[in-house]
Design a protein around this nucleic acid. Structure first.
Length: 697
RNA sequence: GGGCGGGUAGCUCAGCGGCAGAGCGUCUCGUUUACACCGAGAAGGUCAGAGGUUCAAAUCCUCUCCCGCCCACCA
């Protein structure tokens, strides 16, 4: 690519001139079988919702640095590129695109809409892969994985069926978080809570005998679905109400007054109205006391079964009901309180809890085996403290609602009888040949319900292994993730792996910091605070971006992204470039006969510094402290090699043998962090192979 | 409400029992066999605050105050 003479001519290194050529050279080597032992990295497949941001860049730069280091350590690294279909998220962005054309997905219909999403995928999926290449990632480019690949979908369906056959999956009508905009159920983990001021209404419910009992609620409209009132067993103030019957205002239904521990005696009046259909806590209480579900809000957030309020939007109904209570003298006071509004984490719409027929995965046993596995340290967390987040979640686990009513996703392998309705079903990958037990006809229709994307993601570590050969790469050695998806993704991969493969899916989890703006705000496209890694690459080159990000990487602090370390990186590249220019110059002038074999004190010093540096770097890389590792190489090369050792060559006689050793070893140590430039210089050593094939000794 | 992380130079952060550090910025000097995207040097700090442990605390413990994150339907 460049010989020594060409290097001599330029006193300034321009990364943009070389990086893409170097990547082309590497590309076919990434999948080369080399080395005895295998080191597998599991990629976190980005959603196809758009282009990559700095968080993705950080995550994969870290992995690539590790990958190159491990290759030099003699491992055969396996790391497949991949992308995720990202159900709701992708459906929403395509819907937004349609909206600009004045269309909704319902205008297109399900089939055409899905086609449209595939078009989107073709476009953005490839953009993401191109971005990965720009980052210089040493992935196996011959094996790109996608969660909608035929074989992947097959693996998802098979997993569902195995769970089903083992009795882990059931279908049930129960209240779930439902997004009125996305028109689908979502899981507990997909709910965002936003603090908001709300009105707490104090309402009198007449007692059947005489007198009143007072309750407090922020959602008076749900009272239409009340089936009981409850108070805490330890609540002495209200204890005299126990066993009495209250009359539901505006409706007239009789409500028993019961005892339940979930009621907080200090909140409101200490008496909680129980609406099992529209509150998850109330549902729990309802199950304990065998109370009926009385649904009064539908999936569009409108009132149903509510007499004159039926068909009215819940917020409107709230006003009407409050007004009527006021007229009847049943509203005693309204208090302002702060509470948390549940929002859809994909579109921000206020969620409703509504009863819906959904598919659930029983979590008790799966959580237990995961906890046991984590206790046995089958998976190590870096930093360790993040393991607790998984434990906390697993210990308080609830069954997982894995079905979604959206269009974009992997369809459940479930067939309903067209004649008898969806209470008669068969679980199968292919159309059942048997006849329906109730109607004795063969009119099976596959459900259009799809899986929660995270159900699919949970299987990622082994669902991407399509062939016998690929199956050898389970489990992976390493996965990297942001902390916000530790349970959404990491915990779920662990129990899926334990269940289906009898072995954890990865040995080590690196939890990396979140990339924030310099002001400490979250980076977000909509706020205009997002930074596109490609813009930075255009400006500084990939090596400098990698340097700048790794320089700022810390294990105990989020990263407030600052561009100056990229400039520092740029300068460092130039320093490296010029150091090698000088080295080649010395080489040219010294003839072999003049080789000084006696070590000077400069030689001795730099050799001992080299040894110490290498040890520190290894230690830090093993702990994923890449920021510290990079700082150490940086200091070594700049201060020890350049400022002291190379300077000494201008006055003293040193050993050329030592100089040779220092310069080749420096190149190796720098390579995981600064892959492009080091490769370029390596070529001018007369080498024709990738630098990551060199042995890290 | 519960849990976690952070508050160190003007800025972004290392250090996590033993002389307060780096990069950028500021200032002074320097065209020496690579590099001015450089070299030599300087200024700049109550290590958030209070108390405690210790021969010794930025570092360990307790409390307080800020900032950030995660979890959780006090309805």
């Amino acid at each position: 690519m460049l010989n020594r003479k060409q290097i001599q001519q330029k006193s300034r290194y321009n990364p943009l001139e070389f990086e893409h050529k170097i990547f082309k050279f590497w590309e076919s080597y990434f999948s080369r079988k080399r080395g005895q032992k295998n080191f597998t990295i599991l990629i976190a497949p980005p959603n196809i919702t758009g282009t990559l941001h700095l968080g993705h860049a950080l995550q994969n730069i870290v992995l690539d640095t590790i990958s190159r280091y491990q290759r030099m350590k003699g491992y055969r690294v396996t790391w497949f590129p991949g992308i995720d279909h990202a159900g709701i998220a992708t459906q929403n962005v395509v819907e937004k695109q349609l909206k600009k054309e004045g269309l909704t997905r319902f205008d297109l219909g399900r089939e055409k809409f899905i086609k449209r999403v595939w078009q989107w995928k073709e476009q953005y999926g490839n953009v993401i892969l191109e971005q990965f290449k720009k980052l210089g990632l040493s992935l196996d480019w011959s094996k790109v994985k996608f969660t909608m690949d035929k074989k992947y979908v097959d693996a998802v369906e098979k997993a569902f069926i195995r769970y089903y056959q083992a009795g882990y999956i059931y279908r049930d009508l129960r209240p779930v978080n439902f997004c009125p905009r996305c028109q689908t159920s979502i899981s507990d983990l997909e709910v965002d809570y936003q603090e908001k001021e709300a009105d707490l209404y104090f309402i009198k419910y007449p007692l059947k005998e005489n007198g009143y009992v007072e309750i407090a609620t922020t959602r008076p409209e749900t009272m239409l679905g009340d089936v009981a009132l409850a108070l805490n067993p330890k609540d002495e103030n209200n204890f005299n109400f126990v066993g009495k019957i209250a009359i539901l205002p505006l409706v007239g239904r009789e409500l028993p007054i019961i005892l339940d521990q979930r009621v907080d005696p200090k909140f409101g009046t200490g008496i909680l109205k129980i609406t099992p259909a529209h509150s998850l806590i109330d549902y729990e209480v309802g199950v304990r006391h065998q109370l009926p579900l009385f649904s009064v809000i539908n999936e569009k957030a409108e009132i149903v079964n509510g007499g004159k309020f039926s068909g009215v939007h819940y917020l409107e109904a709230r006003k009407m009901i409050v007004e009527e209570l006021r007229k009847n003298g049943l509203l005693t006071k309204v208090q302002k309180i702060n509470h948390y509004l549940p929002l859809c984490d994909r579109c921000g719409t206020e969620l409703q809890v509504v009863p819906s027929k959904e598919w659930f995965l029983k979590m008790d046993h799966l959580a237990k085996i995961t906890i046991a596995s984590l206790r046995k340290k089958e998976v190590e967390f870096y930093p360790l403290r993040f393991k607790k987040i998984c434990f906390d979640w697993l210990k308080n686990i609830r069954d997982w609602c894995i079905s979604r009513k959206i269009w974009w996703g992997q369809q459940l392998p479930v067939w309903y009888c067209s004649n008898c309705g969806d209470d008669v079903f068969i679980v199968s990958q292919t159309k059942p040949k048997v006849k329906c037990k109730s109607c004795h006809k063969n009119n099976w229709q596959r459900t259009i319900e799809v899986f929660d994307t995270w159900f699919s993601s949970a299987l990622w570590p082994f669902a991407i292994l399509y062939t016998k050969e690929e199956n050898k790469f389970y489990p992976a050695d390493l996965v990297a993730t942001g902390r916000e998806i530790l349970n959404l993704w990491i915990s779920r991969m662990i129990f899926s792996g334990k269940y289906f493969k009898k072995e954890v899916p990865f040995r080590k989890v690196f939890v990396h910091p979140t990339v924030l703006t310099k002001e400490g705000k979250r980076m977000s496209k909509s706020l205009g605070t997002g930074i596109d890694p490609l813009d930075l690459i255009k400006k500084y080159g990939t090596d400098s971006l990698r340097f700048g990000i790794l320089w700022q990487l810390s294990s105990h602090q989020d990263l407030r992204f600052d561009e100056t370390p990229l400039i520092q990186g740029q300068k460092f590249l130039n320093k490296i470039w010029n150091a090698y220019r000088f080295y080649f110059l010395i080489k040219e002038r010294q003839t072999s006969s003049k080789k000084n074999k006696i070590l000077s004190s400069n030689d001795k010093k730099i050799l001992s510094s080299l040894k110490r540096t290498k040890e520190t770097i290894e230690k830090n890389i093993e702990k994923f402290e890449l920021g510290l590792a990079l700082k150490k190489v940086y200091k070594f090369f700049w201060n020890d090699v350049c400022d002291k050792y190379i300077e000494s060559w201008k006055k003293d006689k040193n050993s050329l043998v030592v100089f040779d050793q220092i310069m080749i070893e420096s190149l190796r140590m720098l390579h995981p962090f600064i892959p492009f430039l080091t490769q370029l210089i390596y070529f001018s050593f007369g080498q024709k192979k990738p630098l990551f094939f060199e042995q890290w000794k």
